[in-house]
Simulated assay, not measured.
Amino acid sequence: MSSTQHGLGPTRAKVLALLQSAPVPLQVTEVADELGLHKNSARFHLDALVDSSYARRQTVAAGQPGRPPLAFSATSEAPTMTNLHLLEVTQVLLAQFVAPAENALTRAEQAGRTWGAGIATQDASPADAFGDLVDHLAERGFGTSHDVTTSTLTFARCPFRASIDPEQLPFICAMHQGFLDGYLEASRSGLTAGRIDIGPRTCRAEVTMSA
C-alpha cells in the first residue's frame, strides 16, 4: 500500500505494519530493536499513531516493582498495511474457479476485460484514453511507462510476479491483457492494444488506432 493511500510516511508505516503483524502488544524497545530505530524515534511514531487512532497504549504486567511499562497494539481503525490477505484470496480463487476450467486462460482474459471496462472513461480522445490507461496501470503497481512516438506501453514491474505461484502467473497475464482490451474498448477512443510481449522481467504492448 502506498503512502498516498494511508497518509503515513515510510517509517511510520513500518511501525504500524509491525504492530499489525505482532500477536501481542509491543513495547517501545521492542519496536525500536525490530526496526533498527532509536528508542526516542520509535516512541515518537508510536505516539503519533495513537493520536491518529491507529494504535492504542496499554500497560503490561512486568513482574517487577515500579511503574508498569507501556505497550502498543494496532486498532481496527488503522489502514491495513499488507496485501498478503488479498494475494492469498487471489490465488485461492484462481486455483478453485479458473485453473480447473478447460478455457481457463479465456475466462481469465474475460475477467480482465470486465475489470478494465469498469474503470474506463467513455468517449475519451485517443490521447486522454492512452494517458489515463497508463495512470491506472501505474496506480495498480505495474510500473508503467510509455513511448509516445511508438505508443508502446512498458511494464517494468508486475505486482504479482514475485507473489503469485508461478503456475498461476499465466492467468494473471491473461487478466492483464483483458484489462487493456476492456479498458480501451469501453473508452470508445478507437485505440486497441496488441498482445502483451511477456519477458522475464519487462513486458510490453503496443497501442494503436483501430483500422
Rank of each mutant, 00 (worst) to 15 (best):
E77V: 04
A120E: 12
L105S: 07
A127V: 15
R195M: 11
Q91P: 07
V15F: 00
L87Q: 02
P166Y: 05
A138L: 09
T154N: 10
C158M: 07
L133C: 05
S125H: 04
S76L: 05
L133K: 01
P10M: 08
T144Q: 01
G9N: 13
A62K: 00
I172C: 12
H146G: 05
P10S: 10
L180V: 02
T29Y: 13
S189D: 01
S73Y: 09
A193S: 13
I119E: 07
E102C: 06
A117I: 09
G143V: 02
R107L: 14
S52F: 00
V134K: 01
E34L: 10
Q96P: 05
K14M: 08
A186C: 00
G66S: 10
L94W: 04
T11P: 06
E30G: 12
T154H: 14
M175W: 04
A55C: 04
V31I: 12
R57C: 09
P100Y: 07
A101Y: 14
H136D: 01
S2D: 13
E88V: 14
L26I: 10
I172E: 10
T208G: 02
P68H: 07
D197S: 01
L46M: 04
M175R: 06
A120Q: 12
L18C: 00
A104F: 09
A138C: 06
H38C: 04
P170T: 11
D33P: 00
A32I: 12
G182T: 08
T114F: 08
P68Y: 09
R107Q: 08
T149G: 06
Q27Y: 03
D165L: 07
T80N: 03
S210N: 05
Q91K: 15
E30H: 09
V28N: 14
H85F: 01
D51A: 12
M209F: 03
Q5I: 14
V98W: 04
T90K: 07
P68R: 08
E206D: 06
T29N: 11
S52N: 06
S21P: 00
T4S: 11
A78T: 01
F130V: 02
